[in-house]
Design a protein around this nucleic acid. Structure first.
Length: 1027
RNA sequence: GGGCGCUUAGCUCAGCUGGCUAGAGCACUGCCCUUACAUGGCAGGUGUCACAGGUUCGAAUCCUGUAGCGCUCACCA
């Protein structure tokens, strides 16, 4: 037998690399569609390549890894697809910022040059991210790593775009988009964040055209008045009748615009408006309508056929070249101003001309670009849309919902029954509501982005004189899809989308015919939405050597992600997967994990740069410790707050960093910190570096982050390590045998029963995606049951008891298996050591051998081993031990001192049942049967379950005063308890309505308290007699 | 404004299909370097379960309301 000696404590850094290498060499995370076992696939929510991963990602990936590793150990064909996301606007913004620091702009380069620079950035961070995943032990199928712009994914983008285009689900539209004047691109609704801004309500007077007076409009955006094309009033407004048919002469511009009536217009409180409505409090009853610069006005304008006058350039400045033609001489002075300056100038003009009636301060929310942080402009432009409002998409997503989780009647949702209906389930269930409400209020999805980094839109367009337009089938006959529209000037614009397979012939033909490709790229979520299909080779897996992948691994088992992703991504994956895969779901379950916040309650995020690099925690605590604590922190309702410390690179001391408040109001670690023990030494923080504020140098190095929250995990790994060391030391003489043994002694039967229950607890928690109970079950079992009780109990016997050795060996083996998904490294290291020992197997507990723990079988103990009787008996033993220890503790009896228990027969039975456990764990020299008559002189009495027990040889002399005090405290305690139970039992309602077993339990508790009371009082009497 | 959460020990959090004396880790106190582990062992103190009502024999748990915090959707009249 090989003797493996283990170091005195577990050092993660010494083992993690070699364990990773062993897994990698074995290729045990690589799955083939032809492998045995039911498919269990998980798609990593591909992190974007803007920055490295933080602990929020670590949490998500740890939980996924737990799921995947358990599935793998259960013999399923587990495939975890890793990858990254190109994150169009975010990545482009990051790179542009970097260039700006060098004094360069995107437009200083050609599109190809710039994309190459972004590609470099992507390559750098992609490799960082993949390394992070590896280091945290994520058992991803690395060989299948994907990036959203890989050829296989691009092929899926082309195919899906073509089919949506051909099916009429993609359209070109002139609509108001969220326009980011800084990055000069359209944004989807999801990329807009609302920020509170201090502003004003300005009250502007517009004269009536007939000179009969004026009306007053209220606005927060006076500069848009240059584009006003109508004035709205509510038809119920008492002033409406008199104004019907009248027109207003727009100041500055001199444009004459109609007054229209619409229910949408809010009436002021003074005229019957709702006082609860903030709008009514500020409204004048007259609404200026600017269809080109306000989404609601756009709708109003359509209803009343108002002119659409765009007064801005793409950079947000006032412009007469983007649709504004009736620029008056007065208006000229405003052209060219920024929107901010224009606002001031317009207000000043109104004031100077006596038309500014009032200005009231007003705080309101304004949309800002989530990346650029400048105010988003509702801007009229031509964009591509996916008509997700079509029932083929949105209603299909609703019909996918689990019926138990759908609110209302699913029959009201349009669409015919299909595969996949009702198959989508959320954990925790409340998030189904988010999903449902989103789809019920869904709006068409703007998918074009005026960026260079991303999937270029595969549409070629050209406009023709009506007479020269090609025939409607000219391009469709050649295999392309086509849509066309008539422009305001009567020309016909033709849009052609070729399928990728015909690129070689159609693209040259299109170019030759004068068509040009759309310069824009697709919203990143378009390609993300295809992730569970595109990574498996859809539409044609064989083309990429992925035979069988799509049919085997789609749908996946579960998507694990964050709350806000439900609308951004989950929704789109469901719609697309179902649309393209004949109703099939991308995943059956959606698990929403909690959010990791920093010590100030702010979500860790790449953009705020307050995230902690998991590698920092791995460095100070080890990957297993990090994973265990993250698992334990994962609860269903509570986000995780994680105070972060900085680790001084000079002294290795952790300290609380000095903080600063950012412009956006966030509290973050200051970019530079001073060593707490040596003020001459400085360091930079991860925040400072990620935010681009500082760079690390040799003299001012980067300080890692750490957090004491992970100590628990590190200590637990060490505990497991040492328990294994001890177990191995006890098994040195063990002999192997093929004949299964049946454990007889109480501690053996008990620990196996507890093991069974722990496995059950873990399995039922996993089924509900509840991770915190998994960590707790492991911790309680390993530390409390196994180490504190079992190992201590068997110390005197195990070396000479082959059956007990078999139990010890089996428990050690079983523990490593169930711990492995959460703490894969330390368990894999110990596995090698434990496997060198072999004993007889335990009947009913099959633990088949395996070279690597990562692919060992998950334990499935026989139900017969879950021995309730053993658990109850051992519980009595534990209670007795704890009672004795309590006396020892209070009397401060030295640990090594052996004492004597004197107990009546019924208690001696418990001692006997324990087969030595009580003696060992309570530090008894012996236990003697006693009727209480013959009382040793130095005996200390204590009540236990209604009996009076005595302990002797505790001390050399009894301190009567202290003893009396102790007994009196017990009496007070038991009196209080007895009174409580008596109160319950004297309540007629309680006796009549409570469950019989509950009442019985109360009676038992009462009689025990009363008996304790009797015993303690008698002991007090005896004590008094001694004096 | 709509929706969804949260508020339990000094800190970070469990518990909530109503029922034993409300728990864990950390921190704290006392004792112990007992040959697995001081990243440890044994013992101990600590809570008006946010607040106010209600339902019930019984509420941390269910209902209503209030306050504070967070997330999310909508909102530039």
């Amino acid at each position: 037998m090989t003797e493996i000696t283990l170091a005195k404590s577990y050092s993660p850094i010494e083992h993690e690399k070699s364990i990773l290498a062993r897994w990698s060499q074995a290729g045990c995370f690589h799955a083939q569609p032809t492998d045995s076992g039911a498919p269990y696939s998980v798609f990593i929510p591909p992190p974007n390549v803007t920055a490295a991963l933080h602990l929020g990602h670590a949490l998500n990936n740890t939980l996924q890894d737990v799921l995947v590793r358990v599935a793998r150990m259960r013999g399923m064909n587990a495939m975890w697809m890793p990858g990254t996301d190109h994150a169009g606007i975010a990545t482009q913004t990051v790179v542009e910022k970097r260039l700006l620091m060098q004094g360069k702009r995107r437009t200083d380069f050609t599109r190809e040059e710039f994309v190459a620079k972004v590609q470099d950035w992507k390559d750098e961070y992609e490799s960082v991210i993949l390394a992070q995943l590896r280091e945290m032990g994520a058992s991803c199928d690395e060989a299948r790593t994907r990036f959203t712009m890989d050829p296989v994914c691009t092929a899926a983008v082309r195919e899906s775009f073509f089919r949506l285009f051909a099916d009429g689900l993609i359209e070109r539209g002139k609509r108001l988009v969220n326009w980011d004047p800084a990055s000069q691109t359209a944004l989807s609704d999801d990329e807009v964040e609302m920020e509170e801004v201090d502003g004003f309500f300005w009250y502007l007077q517009y004269p009536l055209e007939d000179g009969s007076g004026h009306i007053t409009v209220a606005t927060t955006r006076p500069e848009t008045m240059l584009g006003d094309s109508g004035i709205g009033i509510n038809p119920r407004d008492p002033r409406a009748a008199a104004l019907r048919g009248k027109r207003v002469r727009l100041p500055i511009v001199d444009r004459v615009i109609p007054i229209i009536e619409d229910d949408y217009v809010v009436m002021p409180v003074s005229l019957g408006g709702d006082p609860q409505d903030a709008k009514a409090q500020f409204a004048s009853g007259f609404l200026k309508i600017t269809p080109a610069h306000d989404a609601n006005d756009w709708e109003l304008g359509r209803r009343h056929e108002l002119q659409v006058i765009n007064i801005m350039a793409p950079d947000g400045s006032i412009s007469d070249r983007h649709g504004w033609t009736d620029v008056s001489a007065t208006a000229k002075q405003f052209v060219g101003l920024s929107r901010e300056d224009a606002r001031k100038a317009v207000v000043a003009w109104f004031k100077a001309n006596g038309l500014l009636e009032a200005a009231k301060p007003y705080r309101h929310s304004v949309g800002h670009g989530s990346r650029s942080h400048v105010a988003v402009e509702p801007y009229l432009s031509d964009q591509w849309y996916v008509r997700v409002t079509d029932p083929r998409l949105s209603a299909s997503a609703l019909r996918a919902m689990d019926l138990q989780q759908y609110e209302g009647s699913i029959d009201a949702v349009p669409g015919a029954a299909r595969d996949g209906d009702g198959g989508l389930k959320f954990f925790p269930a409340r998030y189904a509501k988010t999903f449902q409400h989103w789809h019920e209020g869904i709006r068409d999805w703007c998918i074009s982005r005026q960026l260079w980094w991303g999937h270029r839109i595969p549409v070629w367009s050209c406009s023709f004189d009506a007479a020269k337009v090609p025939s409607a089938t000219a391009w469709t006959d050649r295999g392309a899809a086509e849509i066309r529209r008539t422009l305001p000037d009567g020309r016909i614009e033709v849009f052609v989308c070729p399928p990728e397979s015909l690129d070689a012939t159609l693209i040259p033909a299109l170019n030759a015919a004068g068509f040009t490709q759309d310069p824009d790229v697709l919203d990143t979520w378009f390609s993300s939405a295809l992730w569970p299909m595109s990574t498996l080779g859809w539409p044609n897996p064989n083309r990429f050597g992925m035979e069988g992948m799509l049919d085997t691994f789609n749908p996946s088992a579960v998507l694990s992600t964050a709350r806000e992703i439900i609308t951004l991504w989950v929704s789109r994956m469901v719609m697309f997967n179902r649309y393209f895969m004949n109703g099939r779901l991308p995943f059956r379950n959606v698990f929403i994990h909690c959010i990791v916040q920093d010590g100030f309650g702010q979500k860790m995020s790449k953009s705020l740069a307050n995230g902690v690099d998991p590698r920092d925690i791995i460095a100070t605590h080890g990957a297993d410790a990090m994973r265990f604590v993250l698992t334990q922190m994962s609860t269903a309702t509570q986000d995780v707050r994680l105070p972060v410390d900085v680790l001084c690179p000079f002294t290795q001391q952790a300290f609380q960093p000095k903080t600063i408040t950012t412009e956006s109001g966030h509290v973050v670690a200051a970019p530079t910190q001073v060593c707490p023990t040596d003020p001459t030494k400085q360091m930079v923080t991860a925040y400072g570096v990620s935010a681009g504020l500082v760079t690390a140098t040799d003299s001012i190095p980067l300080a890692r982050n750490t957090s004491s929250r992970f100590d628990l995990g590190r200590n637990f790994a060490t505990k497991l390590w040492n328990a294994s060391r001890f177990a191995l030391s006890q098994l040195g003489t063990a002999t192997t045998s093929a004949e299964p043994v049946v454990p007889i002694s109480l501690p053996d039967r008990w620990i196996i029963a507890r093991f069974c229950r722990m496995v059950t607890t873990i399995e039922s928690a996993l089924a509900e995606y509840q991770f915190n109970p998994i960590a707790d079950a492991l911790y309680d079992f390993v530390w409390r049951d196994f180490c504190d009780w079992y190992l201590e109990a068997i110390k005197p016997t195990v070396k000479n008891d082959p059956v007990q050795q078999a139990v010890l060996r089996a428990m050690m083996d079983g523990i490593l298996r169930v711990m492995h998904p959460v703490m894969p490294f330390v368990t894999e290291v110990l596995w090698t050591a434990v496997r060198t020992v072999s004993t007889a197997p335990i009947r009913g507990l099959d633990l088949p051998a395996s070279d690597l723990l990562a692919v060992a079988r998950w334990p499935a103990p026989d139900r017969a081993l879950n021995d309730s009787q053993a658990i109850e008996s051992f519980q009595r033993v534990q209670t007795l031990v704890m009672a004795i220890r309590n006396v020892r503790g209070e009397r401060q009896v030295h640990d090594r001192r052996r004492i004597v228990l004197h107990a009546p027969k019924e208690i001696m039975d418990i001692v006997a049942q324990g087969s030595g456990t009580v003696e060992t764990l309570a530090g008894l020299d012996r236990a003697e049967c006693s009727d209480g008559a013959a009382r040793p002189v130095d005996a200390v009495p204590f009540p236990f379950q209604g009996c009076e027990l005595l302990l002797s040889a505790l001390v050399d002399a009894v301190d009567v005063g202290a003893e009396r005090k102790r007994l009196e405290e017990i009496i007070v305690d038991r009196e209080r308890k007895a009174a409580g139970f008596e109160g319950k039992l004297s309540n007629a309602g309680y006796l009549a309505k409570a469950k019989p077993e509950v009442i019985e339990e109360t009676r038992r508790m009462l009689s025990q308290a009363q008996a304790d009371l009797v015993a303690a009082r008698r002991a007090l009497e005896v004590l008094s007699a001694m004096v």
